[in-house]
């Protein structure tokens, strides 16, 4: 019988530093993986943390890690030229087929951009598969912006609105909350337009409200939940909401189901 808890050692192929506390680790991995899925990343003796897949390459996955706790601290301290333990991928992830031939709006707040980055990247390489695409990405301050090097590339193939909550005179991005840009979206057919929202709880709540107010249909909105996932296997119980295990049935949910998930 397979011991699902046993992690495998994965080589760190590259480290991309976004901010002082947010790095992307490009890890050796050659299995199938979807954006929005997650791995349990661990450093033995320090612990495991669920980290979502922020990008997929040939024989690699990107894991964008924010230094916020014991495990991630240790990851930052000891990554150099080393490897990390992984298990996964877990969860459903985003299915790009849900969005093909439609107008897609992606709204991401802070590290919420990580799980959805794979989707954005996919369509930046396959713009013909969409009617149109808008990315609204919000960060606290310019210093917090993730994937800065990607934005230039993305801008060529989609409408990108990069915004920060506050700033001291930075010309390259907007100032304000992501929700302010929802009513300003220029869509051909809002009835059939699709949206993906990922970010902190309050941001997700207001963004989905904004999308509905703008005329989006509930079933055309997808969200991804961040919850405490200790096992990723539907056992530990921490991520359960109602009869749903976020680690098994999510973390990506269509809003028809997602809006009913009351913690």
């Amino acid at each position: 019988m397979k011991n699902e808890y046993r992690p495998f050692l994965s080589e760190i192929k590259e480290v991309i530093k976004h901010t002082d506390i947010e790095y992307t680790f490009r890890m050796a991995y050659d299995g199938e993986v979807k954006p929005g899925q997650f791995f349990e990343v661990s450093i033995p003796k320090f612990g495991e943390a669920p980290i979502s897949v922020s990008g997929m390459g040939n024989n690699s996955v990107d894991l964008t890690i924010r230094r916020v706790g014991k495990v991630t601290n240790e990851v930052f301290e000891n990554f150099v030229g080393d490897a990390l333990f992984l298990r996964g991928p877990y969860g459903n992830g985003f299915d790009v087929n849900d969005y093909t031939n439609k107008e897609l709006v992606v709204i991401a707040g802070g590290t919420g951009l990580s799980p959805v980055r794979g989707v954005v990247d996919y369509f930046s390489y396959h713009p013909e598969e969409l009617k149109a695409m808008t990315l609204i990405a919000g960060f606290k301050t310019p210093k917090d912006i993730l994937f800065m090097e990607d934005f230039g590339r993305w801008m060529k193939n989609m409408e990108v609105i990069l915004t920060v909550d506050c700033s001291e005179d930075d010309a390259f991005c907007h100032i304000g909350l992501v929700t302010e840009y929802i009513p300003k979206l220029k869509l051909q057919d809002v009835d059939r337009a699709v949206a993906v929202v990922v970010g902190p709880p309050a941001m997700m709540r207001f963004s989905t409200q904004g999308l509905l107010a703008a005329g989006f249909r509930e079933e055309n909105i997808w969200i991804s939940y961040e919850r405490k996932m200790c096992c990723g296997l539907g056992k530990c119980g921490h991520c359960k909401i109602d009869d749903t295990y976020i680690c098994l049935d999510g973390p990506v949910f269509n809003f028809v189901k997602g809006r009913k998930l009351i913690d």
Binding site: I43, P44, K45, C230
Partner: peptide, 27 residues
């Protein structure tokens, strides 16, 4: 009740070895 949490530790007398365990958790 089946919930648990994961804990990693290193043995204090020798930081090089340690263990991963799970302990009962409560909602």
């Amino acid at each position: 009740c089946t919930c648990f949490s994961m804990q990693d530790i290193f043995y204090t007398d020798n930081g090089k070895i340690g263990e991963r365990r799970r302990v009962a958790a409560s909602c």
